[in-house]
Design a protein around this nucleic acid. Structure first.
Lengths: 178, 178
DNA sequence: AAATTTACGTCAGCATTGTTGACATATATG
DNA sequence: CATATATGTCAACAATGCTGACGTAAATTT
């Protein structure tokens, strides 16, 4: 290291975040910025290990998302998946096409409405989804365990408040959380 | 809607997440999956408005990240920024090059080590960063206000637990949080 | 003083994943 | 029968990651 500072140098004396100064809003600003940064770091790390597994299969994060939600809502339609992911049908179509072609996902015609393609994971798909998501589950399990039940409730409340769409919030509106 | 179900149809009776069944781990699994999904939805919405602003300027999310952290740590080096973002120097170089060329960021030679390029926002850069981040700050402000101080502490504890790198956790280790 | 390492940059190519726009087909609905 | 809906497809483009190779200046080590 040429730099005499510690690796975590951005925290150290020579470089300080922001300008405390005489700003009366500093505490609030600092608190909000820490929230922004925590979300960034947490999400970055949350996705990194599944991404590494996916890369060995020549798949990407978008494939994980599709696998995840199809596994979560077996028999869901393409429209419903689009609504969850909030991407264009062309983007999803590409990803879904690959997953079907490689045998991770099966499509069956809707009985109620035969225009619909109902989506389900194959055994191969379930297996991959489990492998990918297991890492994220464990990350949450550890974080939840270390933080405690009260913290989990707080986390959930903040996350709900971050969502734009009340439809999305409703997915979690049970008295549950456990 | 051809589909007789409510728009939030993935929650309704016809399609249910998972298979409760006789699995004794169901509650835990459900709790962890809700965490995964909340993080996904929150992050998706957290980034969407800044992304829309960036698009009008022919910039992307990566530019926002760079602007954000340069604004946060004025005078930081390229290496430090790489360490925070955890991307390759080639990826950052492209983004940083554009930001410098378009007058959002200035580079000055390090005094201690003249190989270093110390990064700072110009007034134009500060202005854009403020505009982009303001949306995210307000989102946090609202979520924090609605959830309450105790929830914020819980949120922070869970987020810290999600991070892989203890160096990152140390960025938040003050007795603060406010 | 010479050798090596470090900080940073550059060029080239490639993959993933998002976008827009246009067009097609089958099915459902009024 | 007309129209709307669910889905798919082709094409092109942009942002943002990646790898690999190579280069230069400054600091550090031997």
């Amino acid at each position: 290291m040429t730099d005499e500072r510690h690796p975590a140098s951005l925290r150290s004396a020579s470089v300080r975040p922001g300008k405390p100064g005489a700003n009366p809003l500093f505490l609030r600003d600092e608190e909000l910025r820490q929230g922004i940064e925590m979300l960034f770091f947490a999400y970055r790390d949350f996705t990194s290990e599944p991404d590494a597994i996916l890369a060995t299969l020549k798949l990407g994060r978008a494939h994980h998302r599709a696998l995840y939600f199809i596994g979560r809502y077996p028999g869901c339609t393409v429209s419903e998946l689009l609504d969850v992911l909030k991407i264009t049908k062309q983007s999803l179509s590409r990803v879904l096409g690959q997953l079907v072609e490689e045998g991770y996902v099966e499509q069956t015609q809707g009985q109620r409405d035969r225009r619909q393609r109902l989506l389900e994971l194959t055994e191969k798909g379930r297996s991959l989804e489990r492998e990918l998501t297991e890492n994220q589950r464990q990350r949450f399990a550890r974080a939840y365990r270390e933080a405690g039940a009260e913290a989990v409730a707080g986390f959930r409340a903040v996350m709900l408040g971050m969502m734009s769409d009340s439809e999305d919030r409703l997915r979690f509106d049970g008295e549950n959380g456990a």
